[in-house]
Structures are given as C-alpha cells and as structure tokens.
Design a binder for these strands. Sequence first.
DNA 1: CTGTTAGCGCCTTCAG
DNA 2: CTGAAGGCGCTAACAG
Lengths: 364, 364
Amino acid sequence: MAVTLADVAAHAGVSSATVSRVLSGNYPVAGATRNRVLRAVEELEYVVNGPASALAAASSDLLGILVNDIADPFFGIIASAVQGELEGQGQGEGPVPRKLAVVCNTGGSPERELTYLTLLQRQRAAAIVLTGGAVEDPEHSAALAARLRRLAAGGTRIVLCGRPPLSDGQGGGPVPGALLTVAFDNRGGARALTEHLLALGHRHIGYVAGPAERTTTRHRLEGHSAALEAHESFDPARAERLTVHGGGYHRSAGYEGTRVLLHRAPETTAVLAANDTVALGVCAALREAGLRIPEDVSVAGFDDLPFSADASPTLTTVRLPLQEAGARAGRLALGTQPPPRGGVTTIGHELVVRASTAPPRAGG
Amino acid sequence: MAVTLADVAAHAGVSSATVSRVLSGNYPVAGATRNRVLRAVEELEYVVNGPASALAAASSDLLGILVNDIADPFFGIIASAVQGELEGQGQGEGPVPRKLAVVCNTGGSPERELTYLTLLQRQRAAAIVLTGGAVEDPEHSAALAARLRRLAAGGTRIVLCGRPPLSDGQGGGPVPGALLTVAFDNRGGARALTEHLLALGHRHIGYVAGPAERTTTRHRLEGHSAALEAHESFDPARAERLTVHGGGYHRSAGYEGTRVLLHRAPETTAVLAANDTVALGVCAALREAGLRIPEDVSVAGFDDLPFSADASPTLTTVRLPLQEAGARAGRLALGTQPPPRGGVTTIGHELVVRASTAPPRAGG
DNA sequence: CTGTTAGCGCCTTCAG
DNA sequence: CTGAAGGCGCTAACAG
C-alpha cells in the first residue's frame, strides 16, 4: 500500500540499508548516494513507518505528558512548554522534529492515570512527564510507584513536574532510579501569601481549599497554617472555622466555598483561594453578597495564570513559573539537561501583590 | 529484555497466537484457556508492544489532535471532549481503552501544522482531528490539502473541527474522501452580537479583530459587517475606522487594539472582541482609560469560555458549544457516529447577554 | 477452538 | 562506504 524503504531503495538504486542510514543520519554515507536517496524520498513522498522502526530499534519517538485537566491553562502552559523543548530536537535531516508529545488527560482520576501509563508503556514511550498534584491515597501511591519503577527500569525516563518526589507508600522513601522531579514550593508560596494578609492587618482570613487528598492542596494549606501559627494572633479554632475543605479547582468551588464561609464566619475580611480559578469564583460570590473587593474583603489566588492580571480587581496571587518548570521537565525528559543531584529541582515562587488585597476596614 | 507474547504463551502452555487472540478479544477462545492466559499475563506483568502490533496489524491506536494553542481553554475544552470519546471505546477486556490521543500544539504556525501531520502520518495514526481556524495562505492551503488527501487515502480518518471544510486552493472545491467537518457558525454568531448592540442603540461599534489570514477571524468580521450593512445607520468609512486589524487571540491584542481604537475613534460606545480572551484585554484598556463598562462603553466577547461568566462585569458573548463539537469530532474520528451527508456538521451558537453590554449613554 | 507459518517495515550487525 | 541477511514482537491467514 504505502511506500516503503525498499521502494525508495529500488528507486535510488541502492540497498534499503543505505536508505535507512541516510534517513537516520547516524552513519557515514557518500554525498552522491545521499543526494540520490534524498531525491528518491522526495519523489516517492516516502514517510517512515514509525511502528516498524520503533520495533526494530526498540525505541520510540513518543513522549507522554499526563495532565489533570487539559482545559485548565495551568496544565496547558506546562504542556506547551514541555512540547516546546521537543522542537529542533534530535531531528535527523529534515525540518521535522522526531519526538511527538502525547498529552493525556487524566481528569484527576487515579485510575486513569494508571491507565494512561499502561498505554504509554505499551507504546514504549521514551519518556513520561507527570504534571500536577498527586492523589495521596496510599494504595494508589503504591500502585503508581510500582508502575513508574517498572517503566523506569524499562528505560523510560520519568519526570514529575509540579508534584512532590514519589514515595512508595510503604517506607515512604523516594523511589530511586531514572525518576526526576521538578517541584513547586507550594508551602512557601502559601505561607508568603498569608503573611502578606497578616501584615496588612487581617485577622479573619478565610481559606477555600482545593480537592482533598491531593498533595498540592495539602501543601498550600500547610503553608497557610504555618503562617497563621507563627503569628501572635493565632487561634486554632478560628483557623479551623475559617477553612472550607473539599472543593475542586474550578470556579464553582470558590463560589460555593465562599457562600459557606460567609455563612459560617461573616466576620471574614480576606479569602485565600486554592488557585486563581477558584479565586474568580470567590470574587463572584462576594460580589453577589454585596461585598466590595478589596474594600470589604480581600481576595488572593495562587499560580498567577494569565487571566489574573486582567481580573477586576486585578488579583493578588503567587506566581509559579509554569513555563520554566515545563521547559525544564521537558529537558530532563529528553536528557537534554543533566539532572541535579538527588534528582529534585525545586522551582521558586513569587508573591504578586495586585489590587485585590488591601488592609481590612477600620472596624473590621 | 521485556516480557513478550511468547513468554506469556510458554508460561500458559499455549501458542502465542492464542495469547494474541485472548488479548485482542476478537476471536473465540475456550474459557479455560482464556483464564490461563490471563493469569499468565498478570503474573508476568505483560504489556503489549504497541509498535510491534501496529506493524503487524498495519494499524495504530493513535488519534492525533492538532490545536493552535494548548494553553488556551478554547482548545483545551475541545481536546478534552475528543479524548472523552476514546474512553470505554473498543477496549479489549481490561479497563484500559485502546486509543491514545496525541495532542499537538501548532502554535498557529502552518509549518508546524504540516510537520505534525508528517509525524502523525509516520505513526500511522488512525485518525486526526484538526481544530481551530485555518490559515488562509493559498500555498499552505494547497500543501495542507495535499497532505490530508494523502493521509485520507492511506486510511486515516480526518476531521476538521472548528474550521471550514477544506478547499484545495486550486479550484476551491472541497476535498473529497474521508474528510469530515464540524464547523462553527462564526458568521452567524458575530452577526447576532452586532445586531444585539445595534438594537441597544449603539452606532459607534469598535471591532478588535483576531489574527489576519485566519478563517475564524475573517468569518467573524464578515458577520459583523453583514449586520452593520443591513442596518440603516451603515457608514462604510466609519466601519473601517472602527475596526482594528491584525491582533492575536491573546489579552494583549485586546489591550493594544483598544488603545489604538480609543485614539482613532474616541466616540466609540461599544467594542466587540475577536474572542473572550481578547475581550478581557479590551476591558483592561478601557478601565485604564477611565471608562466604565458598560456605562461608558459596552464590551462583548466570543466563545463563552468558562471565565466569561466570572469576569467583572460578566461578559456578553456568543456561546459556541465546544464540548459538543469536540465530542462529535471525536465520534466521527473514531467512526462511532455516521457522518452526515456531505460530511459537514454545522454547530449552532447562542447569544449570551450578560452585564458588559447596555444601551449607550444618552449623549453617546 | 488451537497451533503453525509467514510476513509487517525497518534497523543493525557482519561481510565485502 | 555499501550490500546482504537476520530478527524485533505481533497478527493473520491457513491448517488441523
């Protein structure tokens, strides 16, 4: 049916081995022969058969990227940056890069995460980047660690991007091997944000948390708590009352969480959201309740996604360099950049103060 | 190195053909044998070699999805919907779906579009979904049409989602074959939006257009123009002056476009943006200029992305059922749903009026 | 229902 | 520098 190497070889009057060598470019071939082959490739519009070469070479051009929600720019930006690293990467002779990114949307489901890993393993992916917070269920952690370990053993490079280094759920120790990590400092970022609000004078700081059982949620919450605890005004009962658990990462979580919060603690003067998207929902609920931002209530997000600078009011948040993290994860996955000792790269954060936070009202 | 079919066969005491049949499930096998094989698969932790089976079967499990910008929710939502259709799809026996979606980020570049198509062709993708507006350069159109035709001829199903049916740049006729289209009514949507503003009493309606040479940009602009022309107040010179061309689909395009617009036509009482994201930038620029929305200037977007309902003020826009379009494209790509006659499905739109549009000021 | 037998298209020694 | 030959792991007839 399709044109094969042999066809090209015949057309160019050489052996198929020669064509293969010209195409992969990893073996000396005389200039004249080379050109003849290249011309034949052009004329016949030959396109390599990926599966066949993957089989023969026992390697593939696929790079897997697992994301929790492909419709969320948080992941889109990371995925885009990872893909960016594939360009101009190890391309043979043409302008065509060799590697292809496979973006898999897990929807945050542990089962699907495992499923996609199987699929990628089946395709013999060269590397896999897992992005976003992990689910902390011990059973799943163990299953995940086992599978990743097997993949790594099979030569697939694994990079965790935006999630903490893997523990196997047993001893809790890190999984060794070709397992690299690019981590965010979610704790530090959340702590900085809460300290910012405390410094402004807020004492009743609400927190609308993300999905339960996710590392990202836990770490941000821990940073928030750490800041509160370190402050003279700390009151455990109040902190507990002002924290709404178990939301998602969507605006509706912010909206609903805020309604709960306002009902439970009308004295709230500031609300921290699990991320920027949630913060949007928080703002909507506050406005609906007739509260002005930041005059009546301050609001802050997390991540600094592009829309945060355009929100009204512009959103105070913590910037995570997603682009940079993704690019680095991509390079690690491709082996373009040497991994740091210990295999863990921690990416910084930056407090971005905008118009959505201000001191509480005098009577607050 | 890795466990192979033969290993499993030996372990289960059957031939490799039997194992293959059990795994693909498309051939009768005795229950007892079946179980034995399945147990062996478990024990050996066997994972099919995708490339090998793709080679032997001359078919693959890969579904390509081309997007202009993976960090843009517009594409994320579509891609997510396409992927959703792969689930519970033709899975053999396990809980593992067979197909894998390959999301390719073209960044809107025609060359990369072609490049990714080559890569996908190399992988012998089962189907390819191309999303988003196309670039209208005749040369590129011809190259694209040629490549798609070849892919289709090779058995790859091609679905265009959110772009008009392909013309080959020569006769301009549609490319025949396994080429399906799910199109948006960008013209109709834009027209409805402009009519809405005209009905509110606006006569100085600015338009911040998207990237030049893209079908989406042109169609929306045409819809806008059509509405203006059909109205008694039509003034070609004014329409031209109030239209800012050549922006992108990012907020900065809206921001900068609006600054140009305000400078050029301070009498503007309403601004239509190329899409919702651009509208955010429009709002930012208006606010910066001290103009209130919608009291001083009305604003409207296009697409109705999730954040539009949370913007402040909430954004009037045209809702495109992206989710539905993506799902349909996915089904067409998988052959799950029979294509309509002519191969073109047009998806409706819906005018969503929110708080960002209002009648112009009395003196406007 | 199950085993045997050829390839699928390419890569990669090994000779020349 | 180039050609010949074997095999990568699986599927798909074909027998039985």
